[in-house]
């Protein structure tokens, strides 16, 4: 399929998110639950001054910032804080659409070290959409104070993606995070997410649907993830597809289904 993604190398849909498209600029998305210190991390990375609060919905506007690391320029997009990407709310839809259609070069999922179980929900969902994921276990100082120990190495193994512990307010772990980001962006480090296994009936249905989805969407979106959304009847995804992929897409689809 002659979609713009392949021809230019940068997703054309990125422009629709007001992200400047240039060759030497990488896009990093920050995802995470509310109250995980995501905005503090955003400030620490970009040096941009903005007030960060700790109640849900604080980042109602998508903030953007940038930084330079080892001669490469990065645009950081702070996505709205969400618990899930299942599009129950506007924020969840915004976050999902950004990861799906702007295709960030790396998505950093910020999680709360003191409440890992609840936060992993989002990590596992992001991993289903994109492989380029880093999990950033933030508030590690808080966890230490509560005498909680998080085995980062093990976490990385179990998830199949790079993991790093940080305390954004003191700057702890930021150098390691920057290093991981640059490695994933350059392709030196290839995350191999270990995806969630669903019930056998669901897995069966997914394998039946996947080839058909590939016919329609090509390699644009992860077909396993799309299959799951179709199975649960998520209409917002179809609406977003319509919005972000233009005539070209429709034309191609027409040919396939002719």
């Amino acid at each position: 399929m002659g979609l713009t993604y392949q021809s230019v190398g940068i997703p054309a849909t990125r422009e629709m998110f007001n992200v400047k498209v240039t060759d030497n600029r990488s896009v990093i998305a920050l995802a995470g639950n509310p109250n995980t210190g995501k905005s503090t991390l955003f400030n620490a990375l970009t040096g941009l001054r903005q007030h960060t609060g700790n109640w849900p919905g604080k980042t109602v506007l998508q903030s953007k910032g940038s930084f330079i690391y080892k001669g490469r320029e990065y645009t950081v997009v702070d996505l709205p804080g969400t618990y899930s990407l299942l599009a129950n709310s506007v924020e969840e839809q915004v976050a999902r659409d950004f990861i799906c259609f702007a295709k960030p070069d790396t998505t950093v999922v910020v999680v709360d070290a003191t409440c890992l179980e609840r936060n992993l929900n989002l990590v596992l969902q992001v991993m289903e959409i994109t492989e380029k994921v880093i999990v950033c276990v933030n508030l590690i100082d808080e966890a230490r104070r509560k005498k909680l120990n998080v085995d980062i190495q093990k976490l990385s193994e179990l998830l199949g993606i790079p993991a790093v512990a940080t305390a954004a307010c003191t700057g702890e772990g930021l150098p390691q995070l920057l290093d991981l980001i640059s490695q994933v962006v350059c392709g030196d480090l290839k995350p191999k997410p270990k995806l969630v296994h669903y019930s056998s009936e669901l897995e069966n249905a997914i394998s039946k649907l996947e080839p058909k989805i590939k016919e329609v969407l090509g390699a644009e979106l992860n077909s396993r993830w799309v299959a799951l959304r179709l199975l649960e009847g998520d209409k917002t995804l179809i609406e977003s597809l319509e919005k972000f992929y233009s005539q070209e897409m429709i034309k191609a689809t027409r040919e396939v289904l002719a």
Binding site: L116, L120, N121, K146, N149, V150, V196, H197, Y198, L202
Partner: peptide
């Protein structure tokens, strides 16, 4: 079923990585 499976994975991963003193 989907949410259940995701949370089950999350639970087991968290159980394998977090220890409390």
């Amino acid at each position: 079923s989907i949410v259940n499976s995701i949370y089950q994975s999350a639970e087991s991963i968290a159980a394998g990585t977090v220890s409390s003193k």
